[in-house]
């Protein structure tokens, strides 16, 4: 029995003025699978997430989730359908505690009530290692905890698809290892993960499939090692001996 398609981008295009962010982009993702996304800055990676999560409307083409068109479905409704996302720069509700931050997501995105919502929050906080700081105001958290909170909040909505936007950026090596462990466990529960990351090493230890975006188009798609070995990918990334600004940290 074939694995059902969870996410489908059908010839999606988007431009901001003269800048092409997505150029006739097509992509399918199977339920429960993992996908890494690399590409230079301005390649359209975050916009891709925006078009899936509902922040950005595609100029043309269609995004489908679990067989259903997302045209005119707003971000909150997409979240309730099962699309969870994190922001590259964490955006916690700074005036609320870690618990409350996650509770909103469980109650609204996850549509849970009372005890069920609390249970979900406690599960997610323990999964992401935030249980000890449950009552800390999110504004007082450090970077690692904020990144974890982004993941916790997305998980609390009970997603089928988790969009991670550079959650490993700025973290130390042991912190990255911990985060990778959390994400792999989440995927093992059947949640599909799409992960944009400059820290390629973290990606390689997690994803089965990698795409490379450049100029709004997919220039490589396949097994991570194969994609990174493609000449066009090497040229964009490593052409000038090493990683320029925004290049991968190998």
């Amino acid at each position: 029995m074939p694995v059902p398609i969870l996410l489908e981008l059908d010839r999606v295009s988007k431009r901001f003025g003269q800048v092409v962010i997505a150029d006739d982009l097509s992509l399918t993702l199977e339920a429960g699978s993992t996908l890494g996304v690399v590409g230079p800055n301005g390649a359209g990676k975050s916009t891709l997430f925006g078009m899936v999560s509902g922040d950005v409307a595609p100029g043309s083409g269609e995004v489908r989730f679990a067989g259903r068109s997302l045209h005119r479905v707003d971000a909150a409704a997409r979240c309730r359908l099962g699309i969870g996302r994190t922001y590259q720069v964490p955006r916690p509700f700074v005036g609320m505690t870690v618990f409350e931050n996650t509770l909103v997501a469980a109650q609204q995105g996850g549509r849970l009530h009372r005890q069920a919502a609390t249970d979900r929050v406690l599960d997610v906080l323990s999964e992401t290692g935030l249980l000890a700081s449950a009552n800390t105001p999110a504004g007082r958290l450090g970077l690692l905890a904020r990144k974890r909170l982004e993941v916790a909040r997305a998980l609390a909505t009970g997603p089928k698809l988790l969009l991670l936007d550079e959650v490993a950026g700025g973290l130390t090596e042991p912190e990255v290892v911990e985060l990778v462990g959390i994400i792999r466990a989440v995927n093992a529960r059947g949640v599909a993960v799409v992960w944009i990351e400059h820290v390629v090493r973290a990606l390689l230890s997690t994803v089965d499939r990698l795409i490379c975006l450049a100029g709004g188009a997919v220039i490589g798609d396949g097994r991570p090692e194969d994609v990174l070995a493609l000449p066009q990918v090497r040229q964009i990334y490593l052409g000038s001996a090493g990683s320029g600004p925004g290049g991968p940290e190998l």
Binding site: D55, A75, A76, C79, Y87, R91, A105, Q108, G109, T157
Partner: peptide, 8 residues
């Protein structure tokens, strides 16, 4: 925006 992303 983040609230919307949490399903609000």
């Amino acid at each position: 925006e983040a609230a919307q992303m949490s399903g609000v």
